[in-house]
């Protein structure tokens, strides 16, 4: 474990806590894409299959349980909670996320480290995580009003990915037996690039102390 990875995991945790706080306290999910949340739940379910078979560390297991629990409960809140679901913007959250799932699965069948059930699903979860934010970014483009919590949510998610790239660089240079992880790195870099545009407008609006609005 290194500081970049720990900071990355904590930032990822923060993004989810921000979202749960928004839903639990102000009972609203305005500006949040249910499609993205469903994709994240699928990412965690397909990636953490090994939670019962492989024990890496207590930290690892606790975090997996937290990510699984929170991502599934966020989807539940947005779908079934009588108050929260009313603020779900289903007219604008129309990105057909099924078009993301199938290509990621096919790609995972072709490009993977090992053609086993678990490894293919793990690779699928990597590819899916890379594109999972797209429905959310599309929704933000459509609904101009990005409230603070939503902006912070996307910002923390992007920061977690940036920190993970620093973690890979750090491990590559310090950890002797750390192997090249082409698939993980490529997928992670693509995912982080998707945030680059958002980061630019987020930081610019923060500097100018004005409301964040993304160009059409």
């Amino acid at each position: 474990m290194n500081i970049f990875r720990l900071a990355g995991d904590m930032t990822h945790l923060m993004s989810i806590v921000v979202l749960l706080l928004k839903m639990h306290t102000i009972k609203s999910c305005a500006g949040i894409s249910l499609k993205t949340q469903e994709l994240y739940a699928l990412v965690f379910i397909t990636r953490y299959l090994d939670i019962f078979t492989d024990f890496v560390s207590l930290y690892n297991t606790v975090m997996k349980i937290f990510f699984l629990g929170t991502s599934i409960s966020i989807v539940w809140y947005m779908r079934y909670h009588k108050v929260v679901k009313q603020s779900y913007d289903k007219d604008h959250d129309t990105f057909r996320h099924y078009f993301l799932i199938l290509p990621c699965f096919l790609l995972a069948l072709i490009i993977n480290d090992e053609f086993t059930f678990r490894e293919v699903l793990w690779t699928f979860s990597l590819y899916l995580e890379a594109v999972a934010i797209i429905p959310q970014l599309v929704l933000l483009q459509r609904t101009k009003n990005i409230d603070n919590l939503t902006g912070n949510y996307v910002f923390f998610l992007g920061a977690y990915r940036g920190l993970y790239i620093l973690n890979w660089i750090y491990r590559y240079f310090t950890d002797s037996h750390y192997r090249r992880k082409g698939i993980t790195w490529t997928s992670g870099i693509v995912q982080t690039l998707l945030y680059a545009d958002f980061f630019y407008y987020y930081i610019r609006s923060w500097r100018r102390n004005e409301r964040l609005n993304l160009p059409a």
């Binding site: 492989d54 890496v56 690892n60 990510f67 480290d113 490894e119 993970y164 037996h177 192997r179 993980t184």
Partner: peptide
């Protein structure tokens, strides 16, 4: 072995 080293990250 490769796999568990591969999957030590979240």
């Amino acid at each position: 072995p490769a796999t568990e080293e591969n999957h030590d990250e979240l």
